[in-house]
């Protein structure tokens, strides 16, 4: 179960964020993936002057046939990687992806190990047999109680 979950997470991580190859990017796709440097919200939600200018440039570059990746690279060259809504999966920024996933994996393994340990804990040992004398006295007491 744990391994299947980890595999699922890894797949989502590797392919989830990748741009869909072939499909023509629309300005609104890009606007949701880029952040306005003055207001720190994605472009589709900001109306700051610099955001408006960025949106205009995105439309111009798309019309000129630039790809999504090219436009992003150009904007990162202007403003730095802080304009990307998702941190890039390379260099130092890769940590933002690896650390949470790594911690989640460590946690899952830990919980699994604990659960495994608990399920293997030996049953409580049966109490030792009473000695015959006591046994007889208990029987007598029970007889009196029922009688």
């Amino acid at each position: 179960m744990t391994t299947r979950l980890a595999a699922l997470l890894a797949t989502a991580f590797l392919f989830g964020g990748a741009p869909s190859a072939g499909a023509a990017p629309s300005p609104s796709d890009l606007e949701a993936e880029l952040v306005c440097p003055t207001c720190k919200t994605t472009l589709d939600q900001s109306d700051a002057p610099v955001a408006r200018r960025m949106k205009q440039i995105i439309r111009e570059r798309l019309a000129a046939g630039a790809t999504e990746a090219e436009i992003k690279a150009e904007l990162v060259d202007q403003f730095g990687s802080r304009v990307l809504a998702e941190p890039p999966k390379s260099g130092f920024d890769l940590l933002a992806w690896v650390v949470p996933l790594g911690l989640a994996a460590i946690g899952a393994v830990g919980v699994g190990a604990l659960a495994w340990g608990w399920s293997r804990r030996p049953e409580a040992e049966p109490s030792p047999p009473l000695d015959p004398l006591l046994e007889r006295r208990v029987d007598e007491a029970l007889d009196r109680f029922d009688g």
């Binding site: 440097p37 060259d77 202007q78 403003f79 730095g80 802080r82």
Partner: peptide
């Protein structure tokens, strides 16, 4: 002179 602080650092 004008310099460019694109990254805002």
């Amino acid at each position: 002179p004008v310099v460019f602080d694109g990254k805002g650092s």
